[in-house]
Design a protein around this nucleic acid. Structure first.
Lengths: 187, 187
DNA sequence: AAGAAGATACCAACTGGTAGGTTTCTTCGC
DNA sequence: GCGAAGAAACCTACCAGTTGGTATCTTCTT
């Protein structure tokens, strides 16, 4: 039996810290502005230690992205499981999941990480594949233009979430959320 | 009378090239990934030349941003001028203007530049002020939650425009545009 | 002549990454 | 049980290249 509390080296924990601080810093400075040195230091380890867990910056960034994507995937899956109506089910899960993330404290991590998706081709590909996968799996039930529009809208809300912590352009988020969900019901 | 064809130095032109190539490179690599050296070279000038026009990287980035913002402002103004219906006028102009930009070749310049807005506080402030200015000026005619939603949706469309050059999630852009505009009409 | 436009050369700071070491953990023969 | 072997975790020192920025010089325009 291992007694974790006596351990001096805790690779899993260190790895976790590297991912989390990396995500946060990414959110503040973007991928290009991310420095291995800084990530390592804030995670309480040296650059050499970081490079032991992630052999290159690219590897680190992709790991951060995968980590966040997985978390989002789980949220979406949970939302979908509790939605009895097939039509627009994925879109509603996407909406609720995204708005959930906006409310989080660690929003910063998500923020520019997803933004970096735009400049980092490998991340872009991952995201597109994820979305395409879901849209294909759910078949035609999420292909309606209005559903597409709803997804875009929540993307926009998420985007504007960076600009100010408080309510978005004016309306409380809950009002907009309900309005969005309404759009996803059958015409 | 100046005889431009004999000139060897054309500062206005150089400045313009610096702004345009800067915008394009920004779109490809983000602000943090932007290198003065690279901007200068692609604009056909040395770094020293660039730093003569823009005394610092920050100054260059802000100038690029201002330049693009001004272009967008003109588009929006033109759209608004040709819209007889006051209700949702700014929102429609915002929608049409944004979708116009998506279709452009120089979309890349806009792309990550606006993204950088999120990490660069000074740019963020400029954007928020621009939007607030318009929303305040147009009074309550653009405060309706549905209009807000429509603006978010076009933001999302613009965002997803980075992911693939072709049509967005599936529907042709024109279909979505019409649907969006419909949302901006009185309830 | 005077100032603007631009080039050249240079610097300190920082970047991602490598090499090679030390410490800690796990495993396995005994 | 114990202890040695070997792997995993982590650190120190360093490298070559790049960064933004400055100082200085030349060329062009007016």
């Amino acid at each position: 039996m291992t007694r974790a509390y006596e351990r001096k080296k805790e690779p899993a924990l260190v790895r976790r810290r590297l991912l989390e601080h990396g995500a946060r810093l990414c959110g503040q400075q973007g991928v290009a502005g991310l420095s291995l040195q800084e990530v390592a230091e804030t995670a309480g380890v040296t650059k050499g230690g970081l490079l032991h867990h992630f052999p290159s910056k690219q590897a680190l960034v992709e790991a951060i992205f995968d980590d966040l994507m997985q978390a989002f995937e789980e949220i979406v899956q949970r939302e979908m499981a509790s939605d009895p109506e097939p039509f627009g089910r994925f879109t509603r899960a996407y909406i609720n999941g995204t708005l959930d993330l906006i409310g989080r404290e660690d929003r910063g991590g998500w923020s520019a990480l997803m933004m970096s998706t735009l400049t980092e081709p490998s991340l872009k590909r991952k995201w597109v594949e994820w979305l395409d996968g879901h849209l294909q799996q759910e078949g035609r039930v999420d292909a309606d233009p209005m559903l597409e529009l709803a997804r875009y809208a929540v993307d926009g809300m998420w985007l504007s979430g960076f600009f100010d912590a408080h309510d978005l352009h004016g309306s409380p988020a809950e009002t907009l959320r309900r309005q969005l969900i309404t759009l996803t019901r059958k015409p």
